[in-house]
Simulated scan of single mutants.
Amino acid sequence: MKPQRISRFIAHDWSTHSSRDRGVERAMEPLVGDALQAGRLAFTLRDDSLVAICADRGLATELRFQQRELLKTLAAAGFAGIERMRIRLTHTPRAPEPAQRLEPREIPESARQILADTAAGIQDDGLANALQRLARAAKTPPD
C-alpha cells in the first residue's frame, strides 16, 4: 500500500499561506538574511500589511528605519498592494536554521586503493583528480 502524500491532509489555504510567506522571506533575504537565518526574524503578510515578527527591540528599530526599502523590495518581487509594515516583538519568531554538521568520512584502505587505481586508468583528468582527492581525503585517522 502506497502512503498518501502529506499535502492531501493539509488545508489548501494553509499551504498557500505558508508558501507565500516563504516567498516573502526569500525576497527579503538580501536585506535581512542574517536575522532570518538566525531565527530572530520572520515575515508574514496580512491583508495590505507586511508583518515582521522580531526577537529583540534593536532589530525592530532597524526594521523601522528600513521600512521603505523593505516595502519597495517586496513590491519589486511581485507582492503588489502591500502598503504598510507592522512590527511585532516576541522571544522566538521561529526556530533557527540548524547548523549542518559534517560527518567524518571513513573509507577502508582497500576501497581507497581501488579509487586510486581507477583514477590512474581514467583518461578524463577532472574525474581522475576528483577520485584521487577522494582517496586522499577519506583516510581514516590513526588510533
Rank of each mutant, 00 (worst) to 15 (best):
L131G: 09
G78I: 12
T73M: 06
D143R: 12
F65L: 14
Q66P: 00
M1P: 01
R88W: 07
L45R: 13
D117R: 12
G58E: 12
P96S: 09
K2H: 03
T73Q: 13
S15P: 00
H17M: 06
G78H: 08
A99L: 11
R22Q: 11
R57M: 05
Q132L: 13
A38E: 12
L89D: 02
K2W: 02
L50V: 06
D117P: 00
R68P: 01
Q123N: 08
A52C: 12
E29H: 14
A130W: 01
A135D: 04
N129H: 07
I10H: 00
K72H: 08
L134E: 07
R20V: 11
I122T: 10
A138M: 04
R22P: 00
L74K: 06
G39T: 10
I87V: 15
P30T: 09
Q132K: 13
E25M: 15
G121Y: 00
E29S: 13
E29P: 00
P141L: 12
K72R: 14
R101H: 10
L131H: 09
Q37T: 13
A120T: 13
A120D: 14
R5N: 09
T118W: 01
A137K: 13
L31D: 04
C54P: 00
R8T: 12
M85F: 07
R112Y: 04
R40E: 15
V51H: 02
R22S: 06
A60R: 06
C54Y: 02
L50S: 02
A27H: 05
L127A: 11
A35T: 08
F9P: 01
L45W: 06
T118V: 13
R112T: 10
D34R: 15
P104I: 03
D21I: 05
R133A: 11
I107S: 02
D34G: 02
P141V: 14
A119Q: 03
